[in-house]
Amino acid sequence: MTLRDIINKLLRRQSSSAKTARERLQLVLAHDRCDLSPELLDQMRREILEVVAKYVEIDLEEGAVSLETEDRMTALVANLPIKRSLMNAEADEVKTT
């Protein structure tokens, strides 16, 4: 965050339009470059979460799957906070019975 951003925030002013343009471009190009529509990305996100949820208990509210792009390389980035492993959870249950 820059000094300008902080002042803008304090004054509740809009940020500069160049910054908005940059952010919008980065997002749209990430999708253009891998030819993936937002709907398809959303479907993929749900399926990834389903698979991961088989193995570990994840925080579905906090989880994020997004496309990030840098230097013409696009990466699929998944950030999924793990609450606990389901294996351990099963083991816990075995112990208590």
């Binding site: 500069s16 339009s17 910054k19 940059r22 471009l25």
Partner: peptide, 18 residues
Amino acid sequence: MMASQEMLAVEDVTDILA
């Protein structure tokens, strides 16, 4: 316009397009 950040800066464009 670039100085007042109301136009994409030169390095914005070169960074994005690499």
